[in-house]
Write a protein that binds this DNA or RNA. Sequence first.
DNA 1: CATGCCTGCTCAATCGATGAAGCAACAATT
DNA 2: AATTGTTGCTTCATCGATTGAGCAGGCATG
Lengths: 341, 341
Amino acid sequence: MTQVKQAKRTTIYDLAELAGTSASAVSAVLNGNWKKRRISAQLAEKIIRIAEEQGYALNMQASLLRREKSHIIGMIVPKYDNRYFGSIVETFEDMARARGLFPIITCTRRDPQLEVEAARTMLSYQVECLIATGATDPDRITEMCAAAGVRSLNLDLPGTLAPSVISDNFAGARELTRRILKNSEQRLGKMEPLLFIGGRGSDHNTAERIRGFREAHADLGVAVYEENILACGYAPEKAEKALDERALDGNALPKGMFVNSTISLEGVMRWIRRSGHLDDRSLVLGCFDWDPFVTLLGNGIEMVRQDVPGMLTKVFELIESGASKPIVIQVPPLIPQAQEA
Amino acid sequence: MTQVKQAKRTTIYDLAELAGTSASAVSAVLNGNWKKRRISAQLAEKIIRIAEEQGYALNMQASLLRREKSHIIGMIVPKYDNRYFGSIVETFEDMARARGLFPIITCTRRDPQLEVEAARTMLSYQVECLIATGATDPDRITEMCAAAGVRSLNLDLPGTLAPSVISDNFAGARELTRRILKNSEQRLGKMEPLLFIGGRGSDHNTAERIRGFREAHADLGVAVYEENILACGYAPEKAEKALDERALDGNALPKGMFVNSTISLEGVMRWIRRSGHLDDRSLVLGCFDWDPFVTLLGNGIEMVRQDVPGMLTKVFELIESGASKPIVIQVPPLIPQAQEA
DNA sequence: CATGCCTGCTCAATCGATGAAGCAACAATT
DNA sequence: AATTGTTGCTTCATCGATTGAGCAGGCATG
C-alpha cells in the first residue's frame, strides 16, 4: 500500500498519554460507564474533548474480543434485484439498528455453496444471530450455527431445525388465484383453468402456492390441468422458455396466469410481447409479489404484497424471546386492490 | 439470553489440547502457512481433522486485532429500492469477494446524519477502504476516513477530496434528451421543449443532467423553458406533487418528459394515470435509469442504463492502484434501444 | 487517634490468534 | 570430536479494549 498519511490509528493509550491519565480511565469514559467507575466529570470531559480532537474511533475488533456479546446480527439474502428482498434488507437494517445491533448482510445468489461460506464467515465475525433469508438449505445453516452456539432463524423459506417466519403462501395464493379467476370471468366472460408459472417445485413456498392455486380452483369448481403447472425456476429466461415449450404442446394456452414472482413476471411479460399476446386485453394475470411498475403495466394485474415489516417484527420478537424451537410462523400477505387498465 | 447449548466457542487452545500440541501450531496449520513454520504434514493433518470434528470457526475479531490488514471493505448506499443500487451492491459484493475482501454494506437512506454514523461504525470495524455511494456529503466522509488513515472513494456522486467514479451524466442526458425529442418529432409530428423532472438541483448529477438536457435542446434548435425544470427530489410523491403544481400554472404541460430516476418515474406514471394522460399515446418519455418493467410499460420509454460493472471495475482499479487524489472518472452509460409500444 | 467509608483513580489480567525467537534432538560436515 | 545445519516444534509478547481488584488520600465517626 502506498499509504502515507497517518500510519497508526489513535488508541486509548494515545489518548491516555495526551490526557495524562490511564487507558482504563479513557476506556471507561468513552464507553459511557464512567459514573459506575467513579471517574470525575472533569476528567471525563477532558478525555472526551481530546478524543474528539484526535478523531478517535474505537477498535471494534479489540472491543469485541474482550466483551462477551458482539451485538452483530447477520443476514444472508438471495438477491437484491427485486423490491421484496430490497425491502427486507432495508427494514432489517433499520430494525436491527433500532435495537442497538449492527447488521451485516450478504447476498448469496441462491447458491448453496456460497450460503455455507457466507454463514461460516459470519460466524467468524461472531454474529449473535443469523437470519437465513430464502436459503436453499436452511437446515445446513442452522446446524453450522448450532455448532458454534449461535442462534439462527429462517425467513421467507422455512427450515425444520430453527424457527421460521414466512408468508402465508397458501392463503395468499388461494386469494390471488380466486381474484384471477374472478377477473377472467368478468373480462372474458368465463372462468377457465389458469396457468401457474415460476418458482422451484422443490421449495416450500412454491409448493404451498400451488396448493393454494389448486384449492381456489376447487372452491370455484374449475379443473386444474397438470400441464399448466410450470415451476420452471425464478429467472426471467426460464419463464420465457417454459412458455415457449408449453406453447408447442397441442393444448391451447390458458388466458389466465398465476406468476410466482416479479422476476418470473419479467419473463412472462417479455414472452407475451414477443408472441403478440399483449395488445388484445385477453390475458388475465396475477403475480405473487409486488412491484410499483407492475401496477402501472395497465393490464389490471393482481398482486400479492408480502408483509415485510410484519415478518421482520416477528423475526425480532423471536430473537428477543430467545425461542429456538422449530416453529413456522405464517404472516398473512397484503393483497392490494388491482388498478384496472 | 436463554442460551444453553455450547456456552463457549471452540478456540485454538481447545484444539491444541485435544491434539496434544501448542496453540501456535494449530494457528499455523489452520491459516495455511504450516510449511513455512515447519510443522510436519502428520501433525497438520491431525489438527485439521480435529478442527473439523469440533466444527471450529476462527474468531475473526482476535485474528484481525493481531493482523495488520483487515481485508474488510465497506460501502454505504442510499437505498435498496431500485435496480441501479441493487445492482451496485450485488456487483460490489461479487467483485470484493473475488479479490479476497470481505464486503460490508449499509444503507443510509440519503440521511447525512446516518451517513456519518455509518462511516464511523465502519471505521471501528477497521475497514481498509470505504466507498461512499450517492452520499449527500461525500467530503465529510472522506475527511473522517482520512483522519483514521483509511482510503475512501466516491461512487455515483462525486466529491472534491477523494477519487470519484460516476456516470457521464452530461453525455447520457444529452443523448437521452435527443432521443426523446426525436421520438416526439416522430410520434407527435413536432419537436417541442421537454419537461425535466426529479432529482435534487443541488446534486452534481442532476446539475449535469440538466446541462445535457439544455445542450440537446440547443443542438436541435429547441428552446428550454425554465418553468419546465422541476428538480423536486427523488421520492415518487414529490414528482406527483410537482406535476400537480406545474399543471396549475397557466402554461400547458409539455408532451415530452425527461424523468431523472426510476423512482421519480413511479410518481410520474401515477400522475399520468390519475390525470388521464396515459390512454392517448401523446406522451413521450425518457428515464435516466433502467428498470425491466419500464421497458414493458409499452409507451416506448427511452432509458439510460448506468454501466454498473464498468463503474465498479474502475472503483477497484483505483483501489488497487492506491490512488487517492481527487479525480473524477466518468463512465459512459448504456442507452439501449427503446422498445416501441 | 484508630477505624471505616467514600472518592477517584491505576494496575494488570484477559479475550483469541499470530509470529518472532528460541530450543531440543538429530544429521551432516570438517 | 567439535561444529554447523535442519527439522519440528514451544514459548511468549503482542494487538486494543475491558474490568475486577487494589490503593492513596480525604473525611467522618466513635
